[in-house]
Amino acid sequence: MTAIQEVVVAPAGPFLSKRMLIILGRCFFAVLLLWAWQWSADEFGMIFFAPPLAVLQRLYEMAISGEMLQHVWATLRVSAIGFVIALVAGLALPFALRLSHRLTEAVEPYVLWSQGIPKYALAPWLILWFGIGDTPKIVIVVLMVFYVIFITTFAGIRAVDRRLINMARILGANETVISREVIWKSMQPFFYSGLKVALPRAVGATIVGEFLVSTQGVGYYIEHARELSDTVGVFAGIVLATGLVLVINGIVEKMERIALAWRPQDREMSH
């Protein structure tokens, strides 16, 4: 240990060096995963594993030809339409049920039971009924998303601190103001945790819907490639789908952090 080394190392401190270690560890792990992928491609053959570089090249070609945008757009369009419909219904219904305790109690078990229906299983029937357009996929997305939003909103409304509502009443707030300023604001954490589940699920549901019936979209691309035994295409499509969902996740998390800056834990995390 020379003196110079000590001078260089000392200001960094144990905290930073631990941070560096973690980053190094992550890089190492990422390389390990890529290597495992490449190794599998060599070991099991191109039919089962597409090598990473070939997948990358396919993605690049898709991006250049505009094919990628076309599929991503088709998937996002269906997801967005279904999501918005489910969001409106999932938010409005709990606020409406708030007006009648009796109605809430009466419908509660059915809402919980109907949650148990495997929504995707409705797809073949919906396809028979609505044909191969966007409609059956949108219905599936709506069903998948609605429950998440409905239940988080419902739980959020239940968890509102009664004392804050009383306080707002004393200060002269009417019911509309209370709904907007106290209930809506205090259920934000619930709303965002619902959103974090619901948005990726909307995209996931669209992709599964596209497996079953479609002529475009990321799910169609994957399934079509599988039917042609185009393994590189399957991998490229899956990488694309995963990337899409992760980007959406990132956006929701960013939104959440901004909207929930008033919460102690989120503050600490952003520092």
Binding site: K18, I22, G25, V203, G204, V234, I238, T242, L246, N249
Partner: peptide, 29 residues
């Protein structure tokens, strides 16, 4: 805890990834 931190981005990615989209891959395999 350091190992948990190392794994974290991969686990979060795996959690977020649409696993159902893997169905064709698993059928292939």
């Amino acid at each position: 805890p350091a190992w948990v931190s190392v794994l974290d981005p991969f686990m979060v990615g795996g959690y977020g990834a649409p696993k159902l989209a893997l169905a064709p891959l698993f059928i292939l395999w």
